[in-house]
């Protein structure tokens, strides 16, 4: 944020008795349910929408469990199968003294997804609280979650590329494990969860 703007007490669309389209920004009278310009559904700024956030959040969390329990990659080297879970892969790297890579894997595949869950849950809990301070850090947090949420799909693509590429017959071949699907679903649900989060709530206490 280039210039910091202190809490500006300004008129929001809701305050003005209007409803703003979150897709195109057009404002409509309070009673409108659909944006006439872009056709998107108009959402009121209220905690009601957080139910969807929680629902996707929970689905994402549920799928995150098998994503960690089942192997992500099955490596077949000279006939010996090696199944790597996400955590197992990181630990393996750690054991082989590849601390740097292990750390990267640990951060990217474990900390960030877990951080996302925590961040979304935190925001979903905090937005209703009148005593919260500062919209900017929270919006930043949400934007980071939204941004990283997509990039978590990297793991899935890496599995896909490795599986497609490392097909050297008996010498080495890599196959995707069931965790790849769980992980992809988990990422997708987390993305949906973050998308469902109405950032306008950050700026506005809910008063029901």
């Amino acid at each position: 944020m280039g210039r910091h703007i202190a809490e500006i007490e300004a008129l929001t669309a809701t305050d003005a008795g209007l409803i703003g389209c979150t897709r195109c920004g057009r404002v409509w009278p309070h009673a409108h349910v659909e944006c006439e310009r872009c056709g998107a559904r108009l959402h009121r700024v209220d905690r009601h929408g957080l139910q969807a956030v929680w629902a996707w959040w929970l689905a994402g969390l549920i799928f995150y469990i098998p994503a960690n329990v089942f192997p992500m990659l099955v490596t077949d080297t000279f006939g010996s199968l090696q199944k790597n879970t996400i955590v197992g892969g990181a630990l393996e790297l750690w054991k082989h003294h590849n601390y740097g890579v292990a750390a990267i894997v640990f951060v990217a595949s474990i900390m960030i997804p877990i951080g996302k869950f925590i961040a979304v849950a935190y925001l979903a809990i905090i937005v209703g609280n009148e005593k919260r301070k500062g919209g900017h850090p929270h919006l930043l947090l949400l934007e980071v979650v939204e941004f990283i949420g997509r990039w978590s799909m990297i793991d899935v693509f890496v599995v896909a590329i490795l599986s497609a590429l490392v097909q050297l017959g008996y010498v080495a071949s890599i196959h995707p494990g069931p965790a790849a699907a769980s992980f992809a679903l988990s990422v997708a649900f987390t993305m949906l969860s973050a998308q469902s989060f109405d950032p306008r709530l950050i700026w506005r206490g809910t008063k029901e």
Binding site: A13, I19, G25
Partner: peptide, 8 residues
């Protein structure tokens, strides 16, 4: 209306 914060 800002889609992020609803400011008009």
């Amino acid at each position: 209306a800002c889609p992020r914060c609803d400011l008009l």
